[in-house]
């Protein structure tokens, strides 16, 4: 499997006390510029993360744009207990969750039986050629999807995933385990038997 540059932007690494994602000195006094640089640098990775949760590109781009604007506005008021990239990822996951909720609202109130519409042609890009495993992943509850995406797409440690999702490490472990169990149940034929 060839390496993709965006795949290399993964776990936030050291925790904030080690200041890995704290603003460089030259940007420390210009938080708006720093957030802009951060999002530009991680734009692709964040959109890809959102795509895994919401399932289509247009919504994923909206989510990231929204998160960017949110952090741009609120940067000064955010507590620096986590890294900037953690904040960005949290904002993207919250936004993705919001998209799923809103879709559910729309679906729940929809008075007509209509075929689901894709937002635009780009969205089809993500939907086409989905594997059975990705279909099963998409059917998981949102929280399990988030945990599995952070653990296996972003390659975050349990501690980092817990910090990003604002839940306990135990919750990350149990949610991850439940998600994997569910995938194994859905896809028994796809999982190679252990010797």
């Amino acid at each position: 499997m060839e390496a993709d540059p965006a795949d290399l932007i993964r776990s936030p690494g050291p925790r904030p006390d080690q200041a890995a994602d704290d603003p460089p000195a030259e940007l420390a006094d210009d938080p708006a510029r720093y957030v802009t640089e951060l999002f530009r640098a991680h734009h692709l990775e964040l959109v890809r993360l959102a795509v895994l949760i919401v399932g289509d590109l247009a919504s994923a781009e909206d989510v990231v744009q929204d998160a960017f604007e949110q952090l741009h506005r609120r940067w000064r008021t955010l507590r620096k207990q986590s890294s900037a990239l953690d904040y960005a990822r949290s904002a993207v996951l919250n936004g993705s969750r919001s998209v799923l909720r809103r879709r559910s609202v729309a679906r729940r109130h929809e008075a007509r039986i209509v075929a689901p519409k894709l937002p635009d042609a780009d969205a089809a890009l993500v939907f086409e050629q989905r594997t059975e495993l990705i279909e099963a992943f998409r059917a998981l509850p949102a929280r399990q999807r988030e945990v599995l995406a952070l653990r296996y797409y972003v390659d975050m440690s349990v501690a980092d995933a817990a910090a990003t999702l604002h839940i306990s490490e135990g919750a990350v472990r149990s949610t991850s385990s439940r998600g994997l169990d569910a995938l194994a149940r859905i896809l028994p034929s796809r999982i190679p038997k252990e010797p």
Partner: peptide, 18 residues
Amino acid sequence: PDLEDLLREELKRTARKV
């Protein structure tokens, strides 16, 4: 471990379509 590897690979393949 097999499922975890498979999931990791599939998630990255899917994400890379963007």
